[in-house]
Simulated assay, not measured.
Amino acid sequence: MTLTKNKYYFEALDYFPYNMSECLDALNYALSYEPEDADSLCLMGRVYSEVLKDYETGKKYFEEAMQSNISNVNTPKFYIECLLSNEDYDEAEKLIEYALKMKGIDKAEIYNCKSLLSERKGDSKQALEYIKEAKRFCYSRSELDILEDREKLVQNKLPKPRTRKKAD
């Protein structure tokens, strides 16, 4: 059954987010073969949170994915993004702390999420610190470019120091 489930999961992943009708068909087939597959549940959570903007339903799928496989490194990033979009900051903070302890997770992505959390809470200086931390765990040029763009964005939000002009 796993090969069949994987076939449908990869089809769904390939269709996401451009052909949602085909994505959902393939995803439902994958879940019918293995209802507790963490990757398929995570993708269903992404459908609800990223495409439909139904964060509460998305959260349910992410929670189910985490319960199904607590060590799945794919789920936390998307779950955190859903929590941030839904303004569930306390839950997001707890999940970030847990995710940073997971073996094999992309820490750069998680620190980027942590910077987003700080930024949403209005602490741009702290957000910059987390972006710097994320850069330490960057291992590709494209990921580093994304973080540098975020760093510029957050820096632009910081208040500019006032300069005094001397009177002649």
Rank of each mutant, 00 (worst) to 15 (best):
N6W: 09
E56L: 05
L95V: 09
K107M: 10
A26C: 00
A167F: 15
R120D: 13
E143G: 11
K165T: 10
A26F: 00
Y29V: 08
I110H: 04
L13W: 07
A99C: 02
Q155H: 12
E91G: 01
G58H: 03
K101Q: 10
T163I: 15
T163N: 15
L158C: 08
L43G: 01
G58D: 04
S140C: 06
L95H: 08
F78C: 07
L144P: 12
K152Y: 02
K94S: 12
N112L: 15
S68N: 03
N86R: 10
D145H: 09
L158F: 07
K5E: 11
K135Y: 07
N74F: 05
D54Y: 05
G122C: 15
N6D: 11
E93S: 11
L147V: 01
L31F: 03
L117G: 04
T163D: 15
A92T: 03
T57V: 01
K101M: 08
E63G: 15
K125Q: 04
E143M: 10
Y61A: 05
D149M: 13
D145V: 08
K77E: 12
Y130V: 09
I110A: 06
K157R: 13
Y79G: 06
E36V: 14
K101T: 10
I96S: 02
K152E: 03
K101C: 09
M102P: 11
S85H: 05
S115P: 06
D88F: 08
F78P: 04
A30G: 13
Y15M: 10
F10N: 13
L84W: 02
K121I: 08
K135D: 08
K157A: 11
E22N: 11
E93I: 09
M102E: 11
N112F: 14
G58W: 04
Q155P: 09
T57Y: 00
K135G: 06
L158N: 07
R162A: 04
D123I: 05
A99Q: 00
I131E: 03
T75R: 00
Y15Q: 08
Y9I: 14
K103D: 15
Y18N: 14
E34M: 07
L147T: 00
L158I: 07
G45H: 02
N6L: 11
N74A: 06
N72R: 00
S21T: 14
C138N: 06
S142Q: 15
C138A: 06
Y9W: 14
T4H: 02
N156A: 09
K59S: 14
S68F: 04
V154P: 02
A12K: 02
D90K: 10
